[in-house]
């Protein structure tokens, strides 16, 4: 990664101006050409350094319901329980974490009611109670990973 690559990643993460030629604006800011910016961006997407470019939507604004849920799973049963939980298509992410509550997953559904149904089914299939932690307030984040 050269210096320009790094500057480009840093700027592109922060966001582009809303205008007809956003990449030209970036090129001018970085004292390079629009063509170089476009080529580099395409290369970074192709290589997987960047995963996506475009509008970043607030999923919750678009409808649907989400929650974070956690379970305390005995170590001996851990992999079996993980399989059961992961088999629900409404479970989007699932992580093993270091805590008494050692399995943490995100449930995404169309309606609020469906969240509770999924939790009930997971409890029924696993025999383990699910701690439901829906967000009460979301704070705007400005994640920025400088390189």
């Amino acid at each position: 990664m050269d210096n320009l690559d790094k500057q480009l990643i840093n700027l592109l993460q922060k966001g582009l101006p809303v205008c007809e030629k956003p990449f030209l604006a970036i090129a001018i800011a970085l004292k390079t050409t629009e063509e170089i910016v476009l080529n580099k961006l395409q290369d970074m997407l192709d290589s997987g350094l960047l995963t996506r470019f475009g509008p970043m939507f607030d999923a919750a604004c678009l409808g649907g319901a989400f929650t974070l849920a956690a379970m305390q799973v005995p170590q001996a049963q851990f992999d079996d329980i993980a399989k059961i939980v992961n088999s629900f298509e409404q479970v989007a992410h699932n992580y093993e974490r270091e805590n008494q509550l050692n399995m943490w997953f995100v449930i995404g559904t169309e309606t609020q009611n469906e969240i509770l149904e999924v939790i009930e089914q997971i409890e029924k299939k696993t025999g383990i109670s699910v701690v439901n932690m829906p967000k009460e307030h979301e704070f705007f984040v400005g994640l920025y990973l400088p390189v």
Binding site: I9, L12, Q13, K14, G15, L16, V18, P22, L41, M44, G48, L49, L50, T51, R52, F53, G54, P55, M56, F57, D58, C61, L62, L145, V147
Partner: peptide, 19 residues
């Protein structure tokens, strides 16, 4: 859409691990 918070920004999403 940006002012209403439906779009957070127009940006690139980096792969955390690769960075």
């Amino acid at each position: 859409l940006i002012s209403r918070g439906i779009i957070r920004r127009i940006a690139a999403v980096p792969n955390h691990y690769k960075l």
